[in-house]
Simulated assay, not measured.
Amino acid sequence: MEQKQQKQAAVEAGASTQTQTQVDEELDIDDNMKHCFDNLIVIDVGANLTNKKYSRDLDSVVQRARDAGVQKLMVHGTSVKSSKEALRLSRIYPDIIYSTAGIHPHDSKSIVEEPTTWFDFEHIAQATECVALGPCGLDYQRDFSEPEVQKQIFVKQLQLAIRLNKPLLIHERSAQNDLLEILDKFENLPPVIVRGFMGTAEEALKYLERRFYISLTGYLCKDKSDSGVRKLLENGSLHLDRLLVETDAPFMYPNTRASKLPQHVKTGITERSLLYLHRYCTFQRNEPCSLPAIVEMIAAFMKKTPDEVALATAFNALKLFGLS
């Protein structure tokens, strides 16, 4: 019953399951095999399409994503400038692209250095097309902004998310204790999504205990530890009702040829997904059309069908961010 509701919600949001004829011809898919390549219904909750790597062919990138089955894209803002650009893209591609407004921890010092830009940021965050605040949070792996500055700007964005009642996208690297200490001080938090999770299963459980959501990327191919993301999926700790998926394009290319990737995961990726991945995506420039391959890998690790993972994650995104 739940799966039927998820599929219905995705279909009502414009997520067609029909194979794109034009793409089938381009990829030279035989008519007799088309039934084996029906698109998954997927939503990319994190693509950095404001990146200059897409400046020349963004229309093609968006169309390829749609043809691959990515029905909606959330373009992240990580500074005042990129948040404004993400909002602009959401208006150029209505009902396909949705924007977020965030000050990444690395960019936190820019608000301190130019405090008047915060008012521009607030204005962007209030737009209807802006469906979430973030990515924001703490990152102690690099020192682009001092930890105390990161905390200050994170709290400001957290307060804004509460005031606007918009979901909060969290970026965290090597800073979980400080981040949770801040979050635990606030009541009536909006939905919290820990995006692009790369930590340990133990760290993930601390988020899940607080009913946070976790989004996963092609990092699955890089995770070689016995206590990381793969374990989280294999032992059933991360349930489908708390899972989202993203490409983090142009980053986090899902290297399906990685030697440490289990064979049952490699064979779980369909030929159609591999065609999009290998034809259009590289280590230098990942694209949203790689998302179906990521979903299929997640499904293989979880021992579920790709349809289950695709529908559940699409349903979660539609519900969380109010995508129409």
Rank of each mutant, 00 (worst) to 15 (best):
Q5C: 12
A9Q: 08
V11A: 01
A13H: 12
A15D: 08
S16D: 02
S16F: 00
D24R: 02
E25Q: 12
L27E: 10
D30R: 01
D31S: 14
K34I: 15
D38Y: 05
V42E: 06
V42A: 05
I43V: 15
V45Q: 00
G46R: 04
G46A: 01
N48D: 08
L49V: 06
T50P: 11
Q63H: 09
Q63D: 14
R66L: 15
D67I: 06
D67M: 04
Q71S: 15
K72R: 07
L73M: 01
H76Q: 03
T78R: 02
S79L: 07
V80T: 09
V80D: 08
K81W: 04
K81P: 02
R88M: 14
S90W: 10
S90L: 11
S90Y: 13
D95W: 03
I96K: 14
S99V: 10
H104D: 12
H106A: 09
S110F: 14
S110I: 12
T116P: 11
W118C: 07
W118A: 04
T128W: 07
E129H: 06
C130V: 12
C130T: 02
L133A: 06
E148L: 05
Q150F: 11
Q150W: 01
Q150P: 08
K156E: 13
L158S: 03
L160R: 01
L160T: 09
R163I: 13
I170P: 07
H171V: 07
N177M: 02
E187V: 13
V192A: 09
A201Q: 06
E202V: 07
L205T: 14
Y207Q: 05
L208C: 03
L208D: 07
R211A: 06
S215K: 03
T217K: 05
Y219R: 04
Y219V: 10
L238E: 05
A249L: 00
P262V: 00
P262A: 07
K266L: 12
L274M: 13
L274F: 10
Y276T: 04
L277F: 01
F283W: 15
Q284L: 15
Q284K: 05
N286H: 06
N286G: 12
P292C: 00
A293F: 05
I294T: 13
V295D: 01
I298H: 05
A299V: 00
A300L: 04
K303P: 13
T305I: 02
E308C: 07
V309L: 04
A312K: 02
F315Y: 15
F315N: 12
N316Q: 01
L320K: 06
